[in-house]
Write a protein that binds this DNA or RNA. Structure first.
Lengths: 143, 143
DNA sequence: ATTATAAAAGATATGTATGTCCGAAATATG
DNA sequence: CATATTTCGGACATACATATCTTTTATAAT
């Protein structure tokens, strides 16, 4: 469903949300080790998120990545859209250009509820929402 | 969701199911042109399906690909499992190895029921079931 | 038998996602 | 100001999916 890059990015951002309080910053190295993704690779993804104002960063000593209050209110789907593009929820699972509710492909109706559940969960839950769930042990980021 | 290979394979098999009646055979070239996939590429996929007894073939003049009655009763999910592997429906959407009902990732509970219904739909609907739907204009393979 | 046809099989090529490396820019600290 | 730290940016490397090309094998028809 999602590329590895999106999986890594969501994991990294949620780790950030849980571990950086206020202006406290988190090193790319810490994130890399915790989520078991190469430092240079996750760093690139995080830089992309910074450029698009989904997360924040500071260079130099005491620098690192962190989240502003505004960052925390961003829906998770923005991460997916940025990295994998907006089409992944919309394009036909069989690759047919004409597939839609009126002229569905054979799998369309079977898959639509699944896709819709995923889409709305990502659209209506913010970074902070998921972080709260994890803090309250309602869900987990166990590797 | 699915690899291009799976998309191509499902399209090709359903085209076969609809267009080969009885022992009438269909050329790789015809399938290639109809579903707009390079002949050598779709041929390889079809050969793989033949080796695993999902479809049937005959070489030489009057040869081609076709479906036996047994082939037609095969669930669509067998094509997906063969080409993309069995894990694609089972592994965590966030790539977490420990994700399950007891220790769910943040997305797990929001999508599990829908994912499961998709899985069972592909498990219980055969090649013929989907072909029938198309013949009855309940669904379409329009490019 | 010979020929034409078509799948099967193997080898090679291309493209995209993933992963790595190195130097530049920014900045806190002494 | 000098130094250490850390993100940033570009270039490079690797792996895997996708695509192509060539040869071999099987077989129907003449």
């Amino acid at each position: 469903m999602f590329s590895n890059s999106v999986k890594y990015a969501i994991n990294a951002v949620l780790y950030l949300a849980i571990n950086s309080k206020g202006s406290e910053k988190i090193l790319a190295r810490d994130i890399s080790e915790t989520i078991s993704v190469p430092k240079a690779y996750i760093a690139k993804l995080l830089q992309d998120l910074v450029r698009h104002n989904i997360i924040s960063s500071a260079r130099g000593p005491k620098g690192g990545f962190y989240l502003t209050e505004a960052n925390r209110k961003i829906p998770i789907i923005r991460i997916v859209e940025l990295i994998d593009g907006e089409e992944i929820f919309k394009s036909c699972v069989l690759g047919l250009s004409q597939c839609n509710d009126a002229k569905p492909c054979p799998l369309h109706e079977k898959i639509s509820p699944y896709r819709w559940s995923l889409l709305t969960a990502l659209e209506y839950n913010t970074i902070q929402d998921f972080a709260d769930e994890i803090i309250q042990s309602k869900s987990y980021l166990a590797q």
